[in-house]
Amino acid sequence: MSLAQRISRAPEAIAGITILICLMLVALSAPLLFPGDPLAISGTPLLRPFVDATHWLGTDRLGRDVLAGVVHGARTSLLVGLVSAAAAIVLGSVVGTLAGFAGGLLDELLMRVTDAFQTVPGFLMALAFVSTIGPSLMVVVTAIALASWTAPARLVRAEVLSIRERDYVASARAIGMHPLKIAFREILPNALPPVLGLSAIIVAGAILTEAALSFLGLGDPNRVTWGGMIAEGRAVLRSAPFLSIIPGVALVLTVLGVYLAGEGLVEATSRRSRA
């Protein structure tokens, strides 16, 4: 059975992937749906949702369209979430592979660095990083990646330690393969599956961290973010709660989609390895 077939049998995977595909389509087509600057004033302030056909989800305190904000915000959320999670996994995998494969002093050194990063709470580290260097998309991505690479690093190292002792690694050494090639071509690909299982949690965590940073005003000021929208709405929470609720729902849906899709994927791949 192919991977696609197995995924199609897991209802949670279908639900998750559907949510994510919709979100990505929305994010990709944002400039077409709402061509102007989503931060520009486009109507009367504080219009309620579902009353004006041109501002379907209403407007905020400054008269900016909420739907345009949510749609453009999806771009930021997904971009930051995926890129920073990918960076964290790549960094973690490289560190974990080198530490596990080389052993000895290098292992000791890399793992103490990992410890150092892990003892500082991830969100505080990202916060400190962004507030020192200044908020921009690149900085936010870097900050989140730095805050979340340690878990994949530890996981990969543990896998590599067990795979390193297998016969096929000895076989690769016996035919004279270069150690770096053994580490990254023979060992790493076989150490990745559990990390991919973790990736959904990392992506979801990255999206939430980005939202939290934006909520505190540390997001890229030139982009709409859901966190920023929720923070904006806070001032008028009693009179216009929808301003915070709508981006909040978008955030919940995204994280849920990521979790479900990840869960389904792990389920599908583990079924393959059992067969």
């Binding site: 297998r166 096929y168 000895a170 690769a172 035919i175």
Partner: peptide, 13 residues
């Protein structure tokens, strides 16, 4: 060269 005992584990899966 060397050939190992277990033909199941001597190759990258």
């Amino acid at each position: 060269q060397i050939v190992f005992q277990d033909p199941g584990s001597a190759f990258n899966p």
